[in-house]
């Protein structure tokens, strides 16, 4: 059964997986997030995650519009669903998105193949939150990981 949005966020995210980054390309940003996620103790095979994320980007870029990117994948070498966030200091032009706007905020979601329901729910919750202009601005202007975390908690 799908859990509530705030509960899902609490389970999947911790301030340690929120990064204020200075990447200059989509690949650099995604690689950074994957590496960080790989060190969080929940991912058993970082290369499998990297491969799955980039394979998914190969099918279609995960820029969902409004400056948001949601790279995501489900792999079996992960213990539970995890979320990592990067707020880049400037929009990335090479991150293709459905409204052709450059991407500045990236949510990387990794789940297990059998977590379809909560996985979809978390992606939908994130999509819902960032649709609000005020939430997006608050995330971009946040000065620290903790501030980003608080913006999200408040939004839910």
């Amino acid at each position: 059964m799908a859990e509530s949005g705030s509960h899902l966020l609490d389970e999947a995210l911790s301030p340690q997986r929120i990064f204020l980054t200075h990447a200059r390309s989509k690949d650099e940003l995604l690689s950074h997030l994957i590496t960080q996620m790989g060190q969080c103790g929940e991912v058993d095979d970082q290369e499998a995650l990297r491969s799955a994320i980039f394979m998914r980007e190969g099918l279609m870029s995960t820029g969902i519009g409004l400056g948001i990117g949601v790279p995501h994948a489900r792999i079996s070498s992960i213990r539970r669903m995890v979320l990592a966030i990067a707020v880049n200091d400037q929009p990335l032009d090479d991150y293709e998105s459905i409204d052709n706007q450059p991407v500045q905020i990236v949510f990387l979601v990794a789940g297990r193949p059998d977590q379809q329901s909560n996985y979809v729910r978390l992606l939908a919750v994130l999509s819902h939150v960032v649709k609000q202009e005020t939430n997006r601005q608050a995330l971009i202007q946040a000065g620290s990981s903790d501030e980003v975390y608080e913006v999200l908690r408040k939004a839910l």
Partner: peptide, 12 residues
């Protein structure tokens, strides 16, 4: 979750 229909794929 209809808001994700426009950017999620069948494979996801």
């Amino acid at each position: 979750e209809q808001e994700i229909w426009s950017w999620m794929l069948a494979g996801d």
